[in-house]
């Protein structure tokens, strides 16, 4: 069954996934919008950069993030300015790492959704007296609803499932930076298969339910968005 440490790992994982997803939606929406609309020539470079976590071993990403988050890295210096020592081995560090790691899972569905809307509905809205900001919230957001749902669920689920990055930058401190995936690993290492079963099975079920809801949602509303 679930031990106290397991439950705290669950809570940390949930907190991490929720905060990372929110930050990703906040940062990813304008970025994806820009990528869907811009015609700048170097766009492919930015696309490649954002997609890197898809192909890179998480340990590579984790290694560089660790350096960036450490006292001498840019994030570490930011932490020093804010009165801390460094973001490495902290929950904040985990959030920063997750944001980078799950970025493509949020950007790509949003970018696709924005691109598929095209320019026409925006032009129509402009001739109906809607300012650019108004157009975004009254036309783009509702029409890209599927994209937002997909982006949020994939970002969330992917953050829940990360292992390599959090191991590198989180340090596996129980009650602070120990997340579910690492707790499972620990259980398996120490041959506590019952514990591992409960947690692994729970994650499996959660991921399946999340994905199934996305597909169900997109099936139901996909016709409308077409």
């Amino acid at each position: 069954m679930w031990s106290e440490a397991d439950i705290s790992a669950l809570v940390i994982t949930a907190k991490l996934a929720v905060s990372s997803t929110l930050i990703l939606l906040l940062v990813g929406t304008p970025l994806a919008w820009w990528m869907a609309r811009t015609r700048v020539r170097y766009k492919f470079l930015i696309e490649a950069l954002i997609a890197l976590p898809l192909v890179l071993p998480p340990t590579v990403l984790g290694f560089y993030l660790l350096l960036a988050l450490g006292p001498r890295g840019p994030f570490g210096q930011l932490a020093a300015m804010l009165g801390g020592s460094s973001f490495a081995f902290t929950f904040t560090g985990l959030v920063i790492g997750s944001v980078f790691y799950s970025m493509p899972f949020v950007i790509q569905p949003l970018q696709n959704a924005f691109s598929s809307i095209g320019t026409r509905p925006l032009e129509v809205a402009a001739t109906l007296r809607a300012s650019p900001r108004d157009r975004f919230f009254s036309v783009v957001v509702p029409l890209a609803r599927n994209g937002f749902v997909t982006a949020a669920v994939l970002g969330f689920a992917h953050t829940v499932g990360e292992f390599g990055v959090v191991l590198m930058i989180g340090g596996n401190i129980p009650g602070e930076t120990q997340v579910l995936s690492i707790a499972i690993y620990d259980h398996v290492e120490s041959l506590q298969y019952v514990h591992a079963h409960w947690m692994a099975g729970g994650l499996l079920l959660l991921s399946f339910v999340l994905l199934a809801s996305v597909y169900a949602f997109n099936k139901r509303f996909g016709v409308l968005a077409a």
Partner: peptide
């Protein structure tokens, strides 16, 4: 004057109604 500040009505070739 930006498009949204012009008091025009525009009817496009395809109706382009908002699907939502």
């Amino acid at each position: 004057l930006a498009a949204h500040n012009r008091p025009v009505g525009f009817v496009f070739q395809e109706a382009s109604l908002f699907a939502h």
